[in-house]
Amino acid sequence: MVCQYTTDYQDRNNWMFCTFDPSLQVDIFYVYPTAYYNNPGEPAICPVTHSAMRQRARENVINKGSVFKTVGNYFVPYYRQMSLEYLVDQKKNNVRKFIAGPVTDVIQAFTYYMENFNSGRPFILAGHSQGSLLISILLATSFKQHSEYRQSMVAAYIIGYGITQQYLENNPHLRFARGETDYGVIISYNTEAPDITVENITVPRGSIAINPVSWKRDETVASSRLSLGSRIVIKNKTGQLIDVVDRPQYADARIDVNRGVIICSTANPEDFQIIGGEKYFPLGILHNGDYSLYYYDLRKNAQKRVCAFLASQSK
């Protein structure tokens, strides 16, 4: 059964964060990753009020999604989520549920944001995993219909879900980043340890990437000495949060063009295992570290892109 109701974004309870600081010149519209793990008897898609989903989502935004908190005002909608096992199993009925639930919610949340909160300010789109997949759909639909959205977009950080060359060809109104200061572009990558050969479910065939340390598209290694630092989330074996630790100059980065991913040779893969998600993210798939490993590099890059965008508007 496909759920027919929609989420009411006039209700502030359906926004995790809805902030405005006049000293910040841009907004961040952030879509969090999968935070719903259905128990036996629970549906494929959770209600927007699901308490465990909200708790995990908030933890993600505070510890990882907060990368842009010095850059702009945060607008983070709660949305109905599909659990990972159903998201991976793309049967027609699951696809219909995904469109009727998560896709509809994120499109409606962004529309509400633009009509009621944005007030003409530039914005950054950002997400991870399921959140990034949803942003890619938002860009391919709403942004195709609304050219004014594209004119205000500083960048879209689609981290943890691959953007393919075919996607870009199908959406000529979108561009992939080529350097560290271009704006109105997509920034995307997925992270792996060296010598991984297993399938990475977040990397569609033909995915491309940009190096989050050097901000180049070639395969040159960016040494960890060049990185501005990582923010590592430490959990115990049951998945409970223990600590969050900053590690300067921790992560190196190299693009593997054949796999369409970023290779990080300096991270300990065991530190980035997804507790309970090993079936989908085996050891060495550093999905859990996509934001953490390059946390301060992403922050500085967003600041640079914002500066370049604002400079172009003042000409």
Rank of each mutant, 00 (worst) to 15 (best):
Q4S: 12
Y5T: 15
Y5M: 11
T6Q: 14
D8T: 03
T19W: 07
P22Y: 07
S23T: 14
Q25I: 10
I28A: 07
Y32E: 02
A35R: 07
Y36F: 12
P43W: 12
C46L: 10
C46M: 08
S51K: 15
A52D: 15
A52N: 15
Q55H: 14
Q55W: 12
A57E: 06
A57M: 06
V61P: 07
V61Q: 06
I62E: 11
N63I: 06
F68M: 14
T70R: 13
V71Q: 05
F75H: 11
V76T: 05
Y78C: 00
L84H: 13
V88N: 04
K91G: 10
K92D: 15
N93H: 15
N94C: 09
F98W: 10
F98R: 08
F98Y: 13
Q108V: 01
A109L: 09
T111Q: 15
Y112C: 07
Y112P: 05
N116Q: 11
F117D: 09
N118Y: 10
S119Y: 13
S119Q: 15
F123L: 09
G127L: 06
S129F: 06
S129R: 03
S142G: 09
H146C: 09
S147H: 11
E148H: 11
R150V: 07
I158D: 01
G160S: 05
I163Y: 00
Q165M: 02
N171M: 06
P172R: 03
R175C: 05
R175V: 06
R178K: 13
R178I: 03
D182A: 07
T191D: 01
E192S: 02
D195M: 04
E199D: 10
A209V: 05
A209H: 04
V213A: 06
R217M: 03
D218W: 00
S224L: 09
S224Q: 13
L226R: 11
G229P: 06
I234K: 13
K237Y: 06
G239F: 09
Q240I: 08
I242S: 12
R247D: 05
P248K: 04
Q249G: 05
A253E: 07
A253W: 02
D256R: 02
V261R: 00
I262M: 01
I263C: 00
C264S: 08
E270T: 11
E270S: 12
F272D: 09
Q273Y: 09
Q273D: 12
Q273I: 13
I274N: 10
F281V: 05
P282R: 03
L283C: 09
L286E: 04
H287V: 07
D290H: 03
L293E: 05
Y296R: 08
D297C: 06
R305D: 01
C307H: 15
F309L: 11
F309D: 03
